[in-house]
């Protein structure tokens, strides 16, 4: 079984460059504006789209993504609407992979089986659920794999060589390496340390490794892309959304361009990366 994620990473590997993985919060600043932004992402240079499922208590997220979730919830975002956003996007794009990212409770309350069926039908390719470590695989990871969705696990600087196999087991699509110990958007990763960590993970798996948490600029993206198979950018993009809003927090004529301009810069950075070595 291959998913859009597998196919996209394989194609980019053939091209010899890393993927740009863009994160936005579903329903931020509202459902309609969010769909407009998401639809514009692939043309701007996004290779994989991550959509946050908003949650009231995002324990691993920094202020930028916390308030993005609050904006979405205030605008009335629900899980049903998030799946609707994916469905609407799929009407015009059947190739760009979509990963839903968030916390377990909204999925648990939606109902795991129903969620997997509905997500698959809407055109979701993978899931990242922050508060489900391998110790809780029976909750969602194993049912998701059975349903044909990738379950993308986070590996972190605290995941040592002894623990890595447990983290990689049942992981599919790609591995998401969290470049810092900390919350999203909090600190700037050190590219040389990150590249060493990516190389360490690659000794344990054939899956692509994408790196996120703290990447904000095209230059940083380029440095990370020299070692990694993908670069994830989130806080900088949701900040761009926030800065484009009017005084009432509503989307403006600038909102879509604010995001796509930054995506284009990040994409240019990644295209400029020199791959360290052929794999």
């Amino acid at each position: 079984m291959t998913t859009r994620i597998d196919r996209r990473f394989a194609a980019l590997k053939a091209e010899g460059r890393a993927a740009l993985v863009t994160f936005l919060m579903a329903g931020d600043p509202d459902a309609e504006a969010c769909l407009a932004i998401v639809k514009a992402l692939p043309a701007a240079g996004a290779d994989v789209i991550e959509l946050g499922m908003p949650f009231t208590d995002p324990m691993a997220d920094g202020p930028a993504i916390q308030v993005a979730g609050q904006r979405a919830l205030k605008a009335g975002q629900t899980m049903v609407k998030t799946l609707g956003l994916v469905r609407a996007f799929r009407q015009s794009d059947d190739a760009t992979p979509i990963v839903l990212m968030g916390y377990y409770n909204p999925i648990y309350i939606y109902g795991v089986e129903k969620f997997l069926v509905d997500a698959k039908a809407a055109g979701v390719d993978g899931l990242i659920v922050v508060d489900l470590p391998p110790e809780e695989d029976e909750e969602l990871c194993l049912p998701a794999l059975k349903a044909g969705l990738n379950f993308i696990r986070l590996a972190t600087p605290t995941t040592d060589d002894k623990r890595l196999p447990a983290v990689l087991n049942n992981t599919s699509g790609f591995v998401y390496y969290v470049s810092i110990t900390g919350i999203t958007g909090a600190a700037t990763p050190d590219p040389s340390k990150v590249n060493a960590a990516v190389a360490r993970i690659k000794r344990h798996t054939k899956l692509p490794v994408a790196v996120g948490f703290g990447v904000r600029t095209g230059e940083q993206a380029r440095a990370i892309a020299e070692g990694a198979d993908g670069v994830v950018v989130g806080s900088a993009l949701v900040d761009a959304v926030r800065q484009s809003l009017d005084a009432d927090g509503k989307a403006t004529a600038r909102t879509v361009a604010a995001v796509t301009d930054l995506v284009a810069q990040l994409s240019a950075g990644i295209h400029g990366a020199k791959k360290a070595a052929a794999e």
Binding site: V130, P133, E136, T156, T158, T159
Partner: peptide, 20 residues
């Protein structure tokens, strides 16, 4: 041994915290 009281309890934390 996995921290469950019936269906309750467990270890629903981010990977960074799991080794800790």
């Amino acid at each position: 041994e996995r921290g469950h009281f019936g269906i309750y309890g467990g270890r629903f934390v981010a990977e960074t915290l799991m080794p800790l």
